[in-house]
């Protein structure tokens, strides 16, 4: 048996009940939705705070970096 196989056997695994799986799935969905809401909030805040001119960027010819 290789060291890797031996380590894999040592890893303790927890078998979750159906209720625990269901609650974990719900929490994951809630965290995902919260993160998405946070993206929307910060996007909206940026546009409101700086206005549409935040999209006006001069691109230096040749340089490729925004000023």
């Amino acid at each position: 048996m290789t060291t890797r196989e031996s380590n894999a056997q040592d890893i303790e695994r927890v078998a979750l009940t159906e209720k625990q799986q269901r609650s974990r799935r719900s929490r994951n969905i809630a965290i995902g939705l919260s993160l998405f809401a946070l993206v929307v909030v910060f996007y909206g805040a940026t546009i409101s705070k700086f206005g549409p001119q935040i999209m006006d960027r001069h691109i230096e010819s040749g340089g490729g970096f925004n000023q």
Binding site: E12, V14, L16, K19, Q20, S23, S26, R27, I29
Partner: peptide, 11 residues
């Protein structure tokens, strides 16, 4: 290895 507490808290 022992007893683990697993949360079943809902959102």
């Amino acid at each position: 290895a022992g007893i683990y507490d697993v949360s079943h808290a809902m959102p």
